[in-house]
Design a protein around this nucleic acid. Structure first.
Length: 275
DNA sequence: AACAAGACCTGCATGC
DNA sequence: TGCATGCAGGTCTTGT
């Protein structure tokens, strides 16, 4: 589901609606998503003053009072919509928060691959879900030199390596395909061979595609919508993802965009442009 | 230790 | 119309 650009878009939308507000009602409409909700979650949410909203990889972190943090992952199908009090619960609205200005925030996740957790402020670095996560690709320090180092001795295809959140945080299937296309690197290339100028090109391509996607409000596919319910529109600018059999936009090769399966996931690429 | 495959869920498009 | 199949933005667990 949502990758870094979609999560960042949701974070920004939610921050506008939630920051500085108090939760006046917290309704957990089931006890779990992919795993059980943490103990006392409803009590911790109810009455909490919401501070800043941050993002780490595909996680959103919401400050609660002075000491707490709500940790949220949207899995494949999760969405969060902030609206008004009108309207009944939709199917798969699992958590519903009412704020002191009447805003109603709904966490909807059909497949329930998402995660909700609660942690103490300062636990971010040691929390099992966050510790060991690789660098933020849009922060300083993410460059070709870093990638070369991180990919050294990785005997897996570069496509799979980039999906590993320990190498770089926030990439998923769509943006990995798009970044590799932009960098002209075959998804089947051994990760350890991505070094030097090639690694620099890849780091730039990752930063560029993510930045452009955030500016477009993310990509709307089946489930993803922004926090206000609007659609992102970056899906119209995918060069290869979802374009199997269509001409490659960057060259005149006969076969066009191909789809293969790697580690159980679809990979889209152009065999001529990407080596 | 590193890597691939399986598992977890629901919904939707497709084809018979 | 119903039914079976395959696919979907992720990642944790299990097996080799």
């Amino acid at each position: 589901m949502p990758e870094l650009p979609e999560v960042e878009t949701v974070r920004r939308g939610l921050a506008r609606r939630m920051s500085g507000r108090r939760i006046v009602q917290a309704e957990l409409r089931r006890p779990d998503l992919r795993r059980p909700f943490p103990p006392m979650l409803a009590e911790r949410l109810d009455g909490a003053l919401i501070g800043a909203l941050a993002r780490r990889g595909k996680y959103i972190l919401i400050e609660l009072d002075e000491t707490g943090l709500l940790l949220l992952h949207l899995g494949m199908s999760g969405r969060i919509i902030a609206g008004d009090a009108n309207g009944a619960h939709a199917k798969h609205d699992h958590v519903v928060l009412t704020l002191d200005d009447g805003t109603v925030v709904r966490l909807n996740d059909a497949r329930r691959f998402g995660i909700l957790d609660y942690l103490r402020r300062g636990e971010e670095a040691t929390h099992p879900l966050l510790a060991g996560m690789g660098p933020e690709p849009l922060e300083p320090g993410f460059d070709g030199a870093y990638l070369s180092r991180a990919l050294a001795r990785k005997m897996t295809p570069i496509k799979s390596a980039l999906l590993d959140q320990r190498i770089v945080a926030g990439l998923g299937n769509i943006y990995v395909c798009e970044a590799l296309y932009r960098a002209g690197i075959s998804p089947r290339r051994l990760a350890a061979t991505v070094t030097g100028a090639r690694a620099a090109r890849l780091a730039s391509a990752i930063r560029d595609v993510l930045t452009e996607a955030i500016e477009a409000g993310g990509s709307s596919l089946r489930d993803y919508v922004q926090a206000n319910g609007e659609l992102g529109y970056f899906q119209h600018r995918w060069a290869v993802y979802g374009h199997e059999g269509e001409p490659c936009p960057g060259c005149t090769c006969a076969e066009g965009v191909r789809r293969i399966t790697q580690a159980g996931r679809s990979t889209f690429f152009c065999a001529k442009k990407q080596r």
